[in-house]
């Protein structure tokens, strides 16, 4: 049996008690700081939210009381700005926020960029992009000389794309990390028109993820300027590129010339034939009917279904389908036409 003296036990208890008290005091202090921080932030929000509204939207004169004094007030301003940016579009508001941030928040975020904690650095990078703090571009570049995470580099790319598109293209060419298509899309959607167009010009030099992201971003932007670029990609050797380009053209929804699409009616890939069936929705039925009739007799159910749907969407579509039923010997196609007619008449 271990023999412990009473003195020793009391000493251990006393030490543990002191440690516990110290720990309790630390927790108490931290809690108090947090409460003070929150209180100070909430007071700023309560007192100055209306002043911010007046300054940003009603052209009131800027008041010096809005200048932050300490971290809690910076956080309050962050909350106001992010709420506005998330909900309101207004060029004048953005310009005022940018100027204010460059003048009064710059130092706070510059310090945050050098912080040891990853979350603080990330928050600063997010704010630099959101508030368009272009004066911190050099500080951001300096961050690259330190050890940074993949997420931080992604935010840096976002910042470069906003403030220095040339540098963005350089950096993305030699990626320090591979990003997913959706991440690239998030970057490309912010790009100015001219910079984004450059991705089409040097299309083959990009990685597959970037190529896919470029096509999908063009589709999401629904800008007619990209029609020509996407049509050029229809001759690409990669089938996935072709399918995505067709999908992009369908999303934009303007077809000026049917000829580039005709060869795809006989494509060996059913996905391509399906997309063409969808795209023909934007072409008058008098031009597209012969090809849609061909697709209606396709071996693939999805293609047949889409072709019938596209025909039925036209004003004379139901008549065309009824006519087709009367002379066609393709049972599958006739069945699809009948189903589509029933569905269409049922929704009227």
């Amino acid at each position: 049996m271990i023999d412990l003296s009473l003195d020793f036990l009391l000493s251990v208890i006393a030490i543990l008690f002191i440690v516990l008290c110290g720990f309790m005091m630390y927790i108490f202090y931290q809690r108090q700081s947090e409460v003070r921080f929150k209180k100070s932030r909430d007071i700023y929000l309560k007192d100055y939210s209306q002043l911010w509204y007046e300054y940003l939207f009603n052209n009131e004169i800027f008041s010096v009381v809005l200048i932050p004094r300490g971290k809690p007030q910076v956080q309050a301003i962050e909350m106001i700005f992010s709420s506005y940016l998330k909900n309101i579009t207004n060029d004048d508001m953005r310009w005022k926020m940018k100027n204010f941030s460059n003048q009064y928040l710059k130092t706070f975020y510059e310090n945050d960029l050098m912080n040891k904690r990853w979350s603080i650095r990330m928050n600063a990078l997010y704010r630099i992009a959101d508030l368009q703090l272009d004066e911190l571009l050099d500080a951001c570049k300096k961050l690259e000389t330190t050890k940074y995470s993949k997420e931080e580099f992604f935010q840096l790319l976002k910042i470069y794309s906003l403030f220095q598109p040339e540098l963005f293209i350089q950096k993305i060419k030699v990626p320090n990390a591979n990003y997913s298509e959706s991440e690239y899309r998030r970057l490309f959607v912010l790009l100015e028109e001219d910079t984004f167009m450059r991705f089409f010009d040097e299309f083959t030099s990009w990685s597959m993820s970037i190529q896919f992201a470029v096509i999908d971003t063009a589709a999401a932007k629904k800008n007619m300027k990209y029609i020509e670029k996407l049509e050029q990609l229809l001759t690409n050797e990669n089938d996935e590129i072709k399918i995505r380009a067709l999908k992009g053209l369908f999303e934009i929804g303007v077809i000026e010339n049917i000829n580039p699409y005709i060869p795809f009616v006989t494509s060996h890939l059913w996905e391509v034939r399906l997309m063409v069936g969808k795209i023909f929705k934007y072409v008058p039925l008098s031009y597209s009917y012969p090809y849609l009739e061909q697709l209606l007799q396709d071996e693939n159910w999805w293609v047949r279904s889409q072709a019938a749907k596209t025909i039925a969407e036209d004003r004379d579509g139901l008549e065309k389908l009824k006519e087709f039923i009367s002379y066609s010997t393709d049972h599958y196609a006739v069945e699809m036409a009948q189903e589509t007619i029933m569905r269409k008449q049922g929704t009227r």
């Binding site: 929000l45 939210s49 209306q50 509204y53 939207f57 909350m79 106001i80 709420s83 506005y84 998330k86 909900n87 309101i88």
Partner: peptide, 12 residues
């Protein structure tokens, strides 16, 4: 839900 934006809408 957002209190700041709610106030903006209210003021507007």
């Amino acid at each position: 839900q957002n209190a700041i934006f709610r106030k903006v809408l209210e003021t507007t």
